[in-house]
Amino acid sequence: MSLVYVALALFCIGLYGTLTRRDIIAVLASVEVMLGGATVLLVGLSATSNLAGVSTPPGETSGVGLVILVLAAAEASVGLALMLAVARRLNTTRIDELDEVSG
């Protein structure tokens, strides 16, 4: 049960950072923390639990983890590329200055 608490604490710390940070790169880093917490919980439960007699087939735990890993890496690279494009065009990376839909 302490695994659930720790992983959820990581997720909620990341959520708090995502809500409060004002710089795009810090928001992206906080999203990475959220994803990390969720991945730890998913892989941890999948690797250790034996819920209702149904155990995960060997290899699928790591398979699911790898899928999340690749998704998160793609998300981070696209997010950072968007941040670079915004910083180059509008000369700011503060999200509260980026409040116009039509730039």
Partner: peptide
């Protein structure tokens, strides 16, 4: 309920099991 049902017996994820899973059901 999920947390209290945990059994701490980790299943090892060896590379051949991962490849069998990735090229099979996944």
């Amino acid at each position: 309920d999920v947390g209290s049902a945990l059994t701490v017996t980790p299943l090892p994820g060896s590379p051949d099991a991962i490849s069998a899973a990735l090229l099979g059901p996944m």
